[in-house]
Design a protein around this nucleic acid. Structure first.
Length: 597
RNA sequence: GCGUUCGUAGCUCAGCUGGAUAGAGCGACGGACUUCGAAUCCGUAGGCCGCAGGUUCGAGUCCUGCCGGACGCACCA
């Protein structure tokens, strides 16, 4: 359904056009998209506001006068009927009022309540069709297989997963892909250290999660380097052997790689992120080479004096960039060129979103431009969702300096604290499986913390603050969901007198209930906006607003304890709408919904 | 040096395509549990929106310059 703001933009545009015609200003024409709308600062001022300033000069009228004129027109049309679309016949009926230079709409509250109660029951509540028919591929995570996931990956993973869910909710067909970086010099370093210190031990032998085991040897490479000055060179040789297909090297690579991947998969499962397809760099790293050579033949690229193949992007201020080494081997971007083409061939997408840290902005600009120059029309549909780095109060995370916040350790610690909270608050019995609920609270806290900030911004990871469960956090939203669920549970058990009445939308139109209703009907539009901007933080802010509004609302407005059975039943229906709204928003934000906590 | 990006309350962040008195959370201070769960709620204090110009009826939002931070400018991924 069309957003009520868009609908009323059309109404206002129609009125302004009529006014223009009447004044003989035939060249003036306002399309609905150009009408500026906003949310009035106070609810009593109305539900949508239209400032009239922009039209003052054009009409040679004071903004106040324009507002009054439009209102008069609207009244006349409502009274007499007209070929102009009547507001009362729209999805979102309401009436117009002039408040100084502003034109404000008061929605028909009963109709809005009806809409909410009917639609929030549906399983698809919150879904829209704004991206209907579009195929969107989302690439995210893309870990190296030489060490376990850390906090930065967690941000990437939850951004990718949440964005995928939101995009799907906006109607698109989504495919989530993960390109595992399982080859390269970094892997060889872990392998070399394992050869030096591993003594054929397995992760089980050391009692370590398999990816942590591999990571341990990656760190040990630093030790090795101090003992053996040749270490770096040996790693290079190992890479060459790997590329040559040396069976022994391949066997070791496979063994360590499997360990790393196995551990990483376990973390995905725990984080509740998933992929529709895994791609492996050892399969893709040669892709793109032919493409680059072809581009060379077609004069799009050139061979430098050094023998390597280059692209000149000076005209775009991007400088020159190597696309293929002089020995004909692929580099990072060669692989990405091939992978993009392969992806579009196997699954023709309308859009491909790369969820990759902001440090790679230059890389993606070059990549997209290369593909465009190669003549791929779809290259304009590639999008780099650049997200900022996660910093610690002490500075940037660095593996070698041991300042990394490990993903598994972090979730462990959060879960431990959540379990403590449950016990301290005496909720152990009500909650049932403490460990399971604590894990969900931990994920809710972590995911919300990572998603509430606009993706493009660097963020500061404050351990203390992230471990807190109070305030603008995931657990706060979970708590409000649990409270709503609790009320509904009591209702089902027959508490209160709601069962003796029946819901009536007309009872929910007072100022007591309206702010909550108006917020709840925004879910589909917020999902749409979040998808359009590729920004889960918009939805996160909305989820918090709903939780907060609900919290204030149920303090003042008795639901089950209401003396009027019909009012009680109506409010139960409203709580159901709150529950399904929070449930859906949480799901899209990868924050587990809890019936009790 | 060049490019990208960010700079809003003590701290962490919102502020949609410029619009009606700049909003949350944390922290501080003061209140509220015989009443649908206090992981909650209510109130108070706290802001030359980095600085300076410009565009506009109107700028936290757009443009220019400067200052400050982050990231990038590899035949590494």
């Amino acid at each position: 359904m069309e957003h009520y703001i868009d609908q009323w933009k059309s109404v206002v545009a129609a009125h302004l056009n009529a006014l223009a015609k009447e004044k003989g200003l035939d060249e003036l024409s306002f399309s609905p998209e150009r009408i500026i709308a906003e949310k009035p600062p106070k609810p009593e001022l109305g539900d949508v506001g239209f400032p009239m300033f922009p039209y003052a000069k054009l009409f040679r009228m004071a903004p106040n006068q324009i507002a009054l004129d439009v209102v008069a027109r609207e009244r006349r049309i409502v009274r007499e009927g007209s070929e102009v679309e009547m507001a009362s016949a729209c999805d979102w009926p309401g009436n117009l009022n002039a408040v100084g230079p502003y034109l404000n709409v008061y929605l028909d509250r009963a109709r809005a309540v009806e809409y909410l109660l009917a639609h929030s029951k549906e399983a698809s509540w919150g879904s829209t069709s704004s991206l209907g028919g579009r195929r969107v591929m989302v690439e995210f995570s893309c870990p190296n297989t030489n060490k376990p996931l850390h906090l930065g990956h967690l941000r990437n993973n939850v951004l990718g997963e949440s964005l995928s869910r939101i995009t799907a909710a906006a109607g698109a067909e989504v495919k989530k892909v993960n390109l595992i970086n399982d080859r390269g010099i970094h892997i060889c370093k872990s392998m070399l250290a394992y050869l030096a210190y591993g003594e054929h031990r397995s992760p089980e032998d050391e009692g370590l999660k398999s990816d942590h085991f591999v990571g341990k040897y990656y760190v040990l490479f630093n030790t090795l380097k101090q003992e053996d000055p040749q270490a770096e060179q040996k790693a290079q040789e190992l890479l060459q052997k790997w590329e040559a297909g040396d069976p022994e090297v391949i066997a070791l690579w496979k063994k360590m790689n499997d360990w790393a991947v196995e551990g990483i998969m376990a973390t995905y499962k725990r984080q509740q992120v998933s992929f529709d397809e895994f791609q492996f760099e050892h399969d893709t790293y040669k892709l793109g080479r032919e493409e680059v050579l072809d581009g060379l033949a077609r004069g799009i690229f050139y061979r430098g004096e050094d023998g390597a193949i280059w692209i000149d992007l000076e005209d775009m201020g991007l400088g020159k960039k190597v696309l293929l080494r002089k020995d004909g081997t692929s580099i990072y971007i060669t692989q990405d060129i091939g992978t993009a083409i392969m992806r579009h061939e196997t699954w023709p997408f309308d859009e491909l979103i790369y969820v990759v840290a902001s440090e790679q902005q230059y890389h993606f600009k070059v990549l997209f431009e290369v593909l465009r120059r190669l003549g791929y029309a779809w290259a304009t549909n590639l999008y780099h969702l650049s997200y900022g780095l996660v910093n610690l109060p002490s500075g940037r995370m660095k593996t070698r300096e041991g300042t990394v916040v490990d993903a598994d350790d972090l979730i462990d610690e959060l879960a431990k604290l959540a379990a403590q909270e449950i016990i301290e608050k005496g909720r152990a019995e009500a909650v049932g499986d403490i460990q399971s609920v604590a894990e969900k609270i931990a994920l809710g806290a972590l995911h919300y913390y990572l998603l509430q900030i606009s993706p493009n911004k660097d963020m500061l990871y404050n351990p203390e603050q992230s471990l807190s469960f109070t305030g603008d956090t995931g657990p706060y939203i979970q708590y409000m969901g649990a409270r709503a669920s609790s009320i509904l549970r009591k209702y089902e058990q027959g508490e209160g007198n709601a069962t003796q009445g029946s819901p009536d939308p007309a009872l929910l139109v007072s100022d007591a209930d309206w702010p909550l209703v108006r917020l709840l009907i925004e879910l589909p539009f917020t999902v749409e906006q979040s998808a359009k901007n590729r920004d889960p933080s918009i939805l996160a802010g909305y989820a918090h607003a709903v939780a907060s509004e609900f919290s204030a609302w149920y303090r003042d407005n008795p639901v089950l304890n209401n003396e009027n059975p019909n009012m009680s039943a109506s409010r139960v229906a409203l709580v159901m709408a709150v529950q399904s709204t929070l449930r859906r928003a949480s799901e899209l934000l990868c924050v587990p919904f809890l019936e009790a906590m």
